[in-house]
Design a protein around this nucleic acid. Sequence first.
DNA 1: TGGGGATTT
Length: 811
Amino acid sequence: MPEKVHTHFGDSDEDSFTQTPNPVSDQVAGQEIARKKRRSKKRKHDETADNTQPRNGESIPDPEPVPIAKPTIKEFTPEGKPGDIPQPPPTKTQVAKHETKSKPKSFSDTKTNFAPLRERANALYELRKKLPIFGHADEIRHKLRAHDVMLLVGETGSGKSTQIPQFLVNEFWCRPTPAQIPKEDGSTRSATVGGCIAITQPRRVAAITLARRVAEEMGTPLGSSSPASKVGYAVRFDTSVSPSTRIKFLTEGMLLQEMLHDPWLTKYSAVVVDEVHERGINVDLTVGFLRNLVSGKKEGRGGVPLKVVVMSATADMESLTGFFQEGFKIQEREQKHVSNGDAAEKKETAKEIAACHIKGRQFPVKTIYSPEPVHDFVDAALKVIFQIHYKEPMPGDILVFLTGQETVEALEHLVNEYATGMDPSLPRIQVLPLFAALPQVAQQRVFQPAPPRTRKVILATNIAETSVTVSGVRYVVDCGKAKVKQFRTRLGLDSLLVKPISKSAAIQRKGRAGREAPGQCFRLYTEKDYLTLDETNTPEILRCDLSQALLNMKARGVDDIVRFPFLTRPPREALEKALLQLLNIDALQDSGKISDIGLQIAKLPLTPTLGRVLLAAAENGPDCLIDVIDIISCLSVENIFLNTTSEEKKEAAEMARRDLYRREGDHLTMLATVRAYASENADRKAWAERHLVSHRAMQSVMDVRKQLRTQCRQAKLLPRDDGSNHTSDPAPILILQSFLRGFGTNTARLVPDGSYRTVVGNQTVAIHPSSVLYGKKVEAIMYNEFVFTNRSYARGVSAVQMDWVGEALAG
DNA sequence: TGGGGATTT
């Protein structure tokens, strides 16, 4: 059987698929490089010779990792070295026995650990010196002394995320500075501004692991483990900082949240925004607020400047430079109106935007395109996997990018089937699926080394593009597609469709083959198709519902949304729709200003709609609120019910969950699940397994629930002592009516032909198969999500009465 | 009859 696969593939045009990149490919890559060179010449900032090299590694011939730039200075300034943090003098406790380690943490105990920390840091220093960015330390420090904003393009493996904060932390401008901050009444108050560096990350794990690494490199304990710790992190549900934290890694969402309470970011001397190229909505908002901050008068900081470093792997430098320059230009124009400023002249250099390019440390990856368009990429991937396995030496695992769980599982079966008939003298194949919905234990298998004489074949969604790094991969197979969620403003509907990826995503996928050795990337599409791909991913801000983003802006005092500095401006229609949505839930006054309700909602870690539901439930009393919090907690995490792939499993799941299902719909079913899980005191994990409920998801539910209960108590929506011993029967009608206050427009009624039509818009919608109401016919339904995949589906569905809907829509 | 991937004092 494998032979057949192999020959068949070879028949089509074996050479094209097994050869080195064809001349056309090289030519085009060359043109791309030439274009980049021309563009970079236009830049007036200092540049290193590195900049003119091809940046994306498309056709780098180097057989070795990119050589490291020579350090520009021979001796390092003391601030770059590990161990320059104040070290306690050696004392008797320091040589004390090991028992102290296992004792509860206290200051004196951690002192004991400083010596080993320092040793480790000294060892790591040797590795740090080899990072491509290391030789740029002085250049970077120098530029940031003169400029407030710096853009830094650093390819994968350049070391930017760990080194930049260490380069900057001992700069003079990074010290806490006494300042006079004007108060509303015209007087001033004394305060200390700055002293700390924030580094934002799109993902929680990245923030935590980077903090851990930098603490190690600096020879300091991590976060709250010691009051002397210099490095900490802050992500939702897990903050670890100390009074002496100087470097803090946090998620973008966390920094936005901090800005809600401290709009001037007075704790910080610098904010480093990492991974900007991913363009999640939070990073767009972050750079928007930061631009206002650096180009404004900084009165809330007592005039102390804030340094901003924007870092990206594949930056569109022109647009980011233009973005920050525009901010300074606007400020200049406004200042000229006020004074005939010659004071403005002096500060001119600070207002230029510095730039810095750092080469990555990446091995060359050969690109092999499909000679012809591929119609069935699962089939094509199967052939390429075996072609690699037959021809290419061991070791070298294969990473295949597919679109979703369905294609991953289909290919998993096919590969296993063909592998059984393989020549026994060949190395074996181990197929490992990887997608977000996969239980954690199964995901972990991807990181375990393969058994001897076995090649790992990892079948992944685009979780492997950014979130998860698998070692040992030398071959990437890229189907060229991904599922993309797009919010359609006009219909108020999310669609999840398979679409071609962007060039930068294709380059990112390819790069996964060159992390440890030279590699190969098989693209299951033609080179012509590659050239027609969009340059970059569509920023999330153009693809999502904007109501939460707008409410956050309003809560920060941005009344005029149109004047907000968007890195990419969403279409007017999308902004208007979001404003209308906020008006509908009373989060805004008719004037467009934020209302008291809006302010309360903005403080909740929820979508505005769910926030509105929570406040409505509070009006129905604490019992109702406690129950609604349980449901909202489920709605704001991943699916709590495990997937049922086969018919058998589905039946087993229905049996196991029978006692949880509620005829009122998914909302009360979730409530029953949370209540049952929470009251299970013996073994919650076993309980979850028995009921085919995701334990991981339920742990998140409990975290959210705790957070929401705490916030509700602080907001006096719940009495102080209530909550834990709540046992009264739920009141389904009150609960569902609370939900209708937020989801009144997400309703559909049954029409005579047996289908459901939306109350607003009269569109056909079907109940999603994952719903407990699937196949049921009720007077009307309310749903949390309206999604289009193969057809329009309502997800998160409960039965409601039409007169409740009428009341909710009437307000 | 079906769920790309993140994230929030």
